[in-house]
Structure formats: C-alpha cells, structure tokens
Amino acid sequence: MPEQKVDEVHRQAAAGHRLLLVGDGVNDAPALAAAHTSIAMGRSGADLTVATADAVIIRDDLTTIPGVIDLSRRARRLVTANLTIAGTFIAVLVGWDLFGHLPLPLGVAGHEGSTIIVGLNGLRLLRDAAWRPLTSTTAKGPERP
C-alpha cells in the first residue's frame, strides 16, 4: 500500500540511509516524493509518478538505472570541474587586478576565454562515449567504456 511504502522510506531515512526509489504507478508517487532521490519509469508510468520523480527513464527497463546513475555522477563531476575552472580564472584575474595592473582587454579576454573553456568542457557529455552505458546493456547491466 502507498502509506506502507512512505512509512518504509521514512524508517530508512531515520536510520540514516539515503534512498533511490524507482516506481511507475500512482501508488508509488507518495513514496517517490518522500525518498531522497526518485526515478519514474516513464513509458508506462502514471502521470503523477512522472511529475513527482526527480528523474524519468523513458524505457521501461530497470537495467538502464546503473547507466543513468553513472551518467549523473559524470555530469556532477563535470559541473564541479567547470565551477573550479571558472573560479580559478576569476580568482587569478581579480588577484592580478588587485596586486598588479590588469589591462581591461586582457581581463575581458581572460573572462571570456574561461567561459569558452567551461562551455567546451560541458560539451563532453554530448559525445557518444558519454551515452554508451545507457544504450548498450547486458544481463549484468550497462557496459563500461
């Protein structure tokens, strides 16, 4: 029952566990909302479940979940790297301007250059290799590139 699922999610959270819950029916929506992270199976999933979940997998195939988790971890690392790159560029430019003389054209070029580097770094997730674990699955789960 839906309330039993929610109670179990709350019990696990009270025990210090972080849950990833997967569901596809209306009866899963309350538990998906209560879980730390939730995934809805979208093709046959109910509209309420799809709207409640943090992520939606269009395929009704549970073997794609490890690939989605892997892709989300890579995306998080990429965002962290981009923030580090941008922050480093800004810190160097600000430090240079405070403790020396940074010509305005060089400051603008440095800032815009960092923006281009961050954008190009973000485009790495569009490569086929980034999506391969999601498209080729085996009985054990997604392949590693």
Rank of each mutant, 00 (worst) to 15 (best):
28 D>P: 01
109 A>L: 11
129 A>D: 14
38 S>K: 00
113 G>Y: 10
69 I>H: 01
110 G>M: 04
59 R>E: 08
124 R>F: 02
6 V>N: 00
49 T>H: 04
54 D>P: 10
117 I>H: 02
92 V>D: 15
41 M>F: 04
68 V>K: 04
136 S>H: 09
70 D>P: 00
129 A>M: 06
35 A>C: 03
40 A>G: 07
57 I>T: 01
87 G>R: 11
32 L>R: 02
112 E>Q: 12
30 P>V: 06
28 D>F: 06
32 L>A: 06
43 R>F: 12
50 V>A: 11
97 D>F: 07
35 A>P: 02
91 A>T: 00
74 R>A: 07
77 R>K: 12
23 G>H: 02
109 A>W: 09
86 A>F: 02
51 A>M: 13
9 V>G: 00
134 L>S: 02
2 P>R: 06
124 R>I: 02
143 E>M: 08
110 G>D: 05
140 K>E: 09
26 V>L: 09
93 L>H: 07
3 E>S: 13
23 G>R: 01
65 I>M: 05
23 G>C: 00
88 T>N: 09
125 L>Q: 11
59 R>P: 09
41 M>V: 04
60 D>R: 03
140 K>P: 06
108 V>F: 10
45 G>Q: 04
128 D>P: 03
130 A>D: 05
53 A>L: 09
114 S>E: 07
18 R>D: 01
14 A>F: 07
28 D>Y: 06
140 K>Y: 03
8 E>K: 09
46 A>I: 04
121 N>E: 11
2 P>H: 13
61 D>M: 11
128 D>E: 15
28 D>S: 12
91 A>F: 04
145 P>A: 05
89 F>D: 02
73 R>L: 10
48 L>Q: 08
120 L>M: 12
15 A>D: 14
9 V>T: 07
139 A>W: 01
96 W>N: 03
26 V>I: 14
51 A>L: 08
139 A>C: 00
94 V>S: 02
101 H>W: 12
2 P>D: 15
119 G>V: 10
124 R>W: 07
35 A>V: 02
58 I>W: 14
4 Q>Y: 12
3 E>A: 09
107 G>L: 12
89 F>R: 05
68 V>I: 15
58 I>H: 13
31 A>S: 12
105 P>H: 07
108 V>A: 10
17 H>M: 14
30 P>R: 05
70 D>L: 12
27 N>G: 09
102 L>P: 03
39 I>R: 03
46 A>F: 11
16 G>N: 07
91 A>S: 12
115 T>R: 11
45 G>L: 01
47 D>E: 10
142 P>C: 08
74 R>D: 00
97 D>A: 12
75 A>N: 02
5 K>V: 08
